[in-house]
Amino acid sequence: MLTATFRRGLAAAMTALAATLAPAATLANDWQLNMPIGVTDISADVYRLHMTILWICIVIGVIVFSAMIYSIFRHRKSLGVEPAKFSHSTKVEVVWTIVPVFILIGMAIPATETLVRMEDTSGSDLTIKVTGYQWLWEYEYLDEDVRFFSRLHRDSDRARQLGSGIDPFSVENYLLEVDNRMVVPVDAKVRLLLTAGDVIHAWWVPDFAVKKDAIPGFINEVWFQANETGVFRGQCAELCGRDHGFMPIVVEVKSQEDYQAWLAAQRGELGDRPVASTNR
């Protein structure tokens, strides 16, 4: 199993390294280095903010580290240099106090702008109440009479037991598949009302740039609007006890028609029976 893992790693290294260096990849891949751009306008903005601040850090880092490295190689006793005597310089000290302030202001403006838009949950097309439990999620489509639980898919659950003998690599979407997916329409503003039944959980889907705590006794609001159909995966992000690592989130974004069909099917199956799994 171990050597298999190594071999897989090596193979993946060959094929995927080039691909990961380009910062696209909403698809999971074995050597993903960077944040996904995601499939919402907000997630793209967040990605841009992330890249901007990262590049600012890299530029500052290159300047500072170059100075350090130059100094380490040139200002060493073994080269017979005499140490200088200076111990301060008001001019440079003022400069390197003031300049960062301006860089920070430049950073704060787009960050504030994006945050304001993220916080605006008004004008949503549909509202889903999401409740976290130890260790599953419940999705309730308000005004639609649709409600179901969503928990770790059976295949993953079997494989993840201590000493199960099942190779996780043989399980499709290991730990990132559920029995009942949350389904939403594309291009619709979806508002989530988050809460929890026992301890604090957090609902995180990287492709939507949404992460918000689900807190027992309180309701948090968050929204997203997916621009593409597809299946997007995330996990509970707040330590919630034993099986915190085993309560994934899977959101399927469908076309408006497919979504309506799905809703109708769900309503038809409502009753005491557990809701059948969504088509996958």
């Binding site: 500072v64 100075a67 350090m68 100094s71 200002h75 006793k77 240099v81 005499e82 140490p83 440079v92």
Partner: peptide, 9 residues
């Protein structure tokens, strides 16, 4: 960094 600069390390 400025402390290291032009020192004799």
């Amino acid at each position: 960094t400025a402390t290291m600069w032009r020192g004799a390390m």
